[in-house]
Nucleic acid binder design. Sequence first.
DNA 1: AGTCAAACTGAACTGAACTCAGGTTGTTTG
DNA 2: CAAACAACCTGAGTTCAGTTCAGTTTGACT
Lengths: 208, 208
Amino acid sequence: MARARIVDPEEGPRSKRGAILVAAVERFGEDGYENTKWSEVADRVGIGQTALYHYFESKAHCLLTIMRLELQRSHDQFVEATKDETDPVEEVRAAVRSAFAVTEQEIRQMRILQANMSLLATPRKSKREETERVAARQLVQMVERDWTSLLMRGMSKGAFPLRDAHTLGLSVLGMIVSVWRWYRPTGAIPLSEISEMIEGCVVRMVAE
Amino acid sequence: MARARIVDPEEGPRSKRGAILVAAVERFGEDGYENTKWSEVADRVGIGQTALYHYFESKAHCLLTIMRLELQRSHDQFVEATKDETDPVEEVRAAVRSAFAVTEQEIRQMRILQANMSLLATPRKSKREETERVAARQLVQMVERDWTSLLMRGMSKGAFPLRDAHTLGLSVLGMIVSVWRWYRPTGAIPLSEISEMIEGCVVRMVAE
DNA sequence: AGTCAAACTGAACTGAACTCAGGTTGTTTG
DNA sequence: CAAACAACCTGAGTTCAGTTCAGTTTGACT
């Protein structure tokens, strides 16, 4: 499986691009994007602030890259998880479970993505930032289409009652990703329990 | 009904506090908080930038005030909408409908609230900002409790199957508020349709 | 050893948020 | 009425994180 990794093997051996992304995910994920000084990321990687600009055009460019990579990963994981299922209900169940089968770093990436989603709405001034933004936007639409087309397949097979698949898909997706706003690995409820609860909710929402 | 209004009648007759809040809601709601220059808000109100500091300690203080007022309004509206209902299912329906019975300005306020929710997580340096942040946080918990206690009542009455009311409440709330991330009054689907669809989803989620 | 691109740096710049040191306006009170 | 006072406002200056500039260092490969 070609899952989008933070560390790109295409880079030169001396490149610190991957290390910067990892450090940025940690800091942006813990304290938030606005609350994190760009120079702190440099400190953590062990380079001067200006060296960051060798790899990213700006702090926002780094953030947008993180968001795009996370969206790519989410989409890939959805496709991977649902490709072998034929029964619509089982397909929905697999999709929900895959959304919560994530590492701690991926949780941070989801949190960053959700917290800064509105950044994708308005155009960016610089070229490379805009490229990342547009790519991220398209991936958002792709993830939305993953869900809507899954629901539409289930409806046309007669497994789900007919409803507005687009609005329903956005609602399901909204409920799933809302978890990353409050979930912390140190919290009282394990993620597996949340996943099971949401799985049941989604099935009742779409199939009854 | 004492709904929290943006314009506080306690203010002096010359005060532009209300006008600043209205202008800020418009600008923050349309272009986003980070994308809006604080001086643009001053321009719109027709005062110099520094005059803003007579009413708010900072741009963030203004944002936090908007968020707190919107949370207060949401809570009040929930209480108002559910107070006469006795049947748990009807109570849930009323709560969902009330969440979507909003004006265009309130839609912007919800959008601002959702987009900047993560601001409530970390303490603020200045006194007045921190006061608003803590008040907003408590209101978030109050709105969450509105939902969880509604679900718990329904469960103990035997109207809803027993589930983790807290996680379920957060999921329901997450689905509802996720609408403000993508909904625009100019869009193809009217809000009434979205409201009906979500109402059905929530009922199936909690009552079946 | 020489060349080249990738990787890096300290010093200077920018712009938006904010502070300061007062000035103006309207209202209250003797 | 005018003095006193608080609310309201302003232009000039400061701050600080993000960014640009003008080069310098590093290491792989002839």
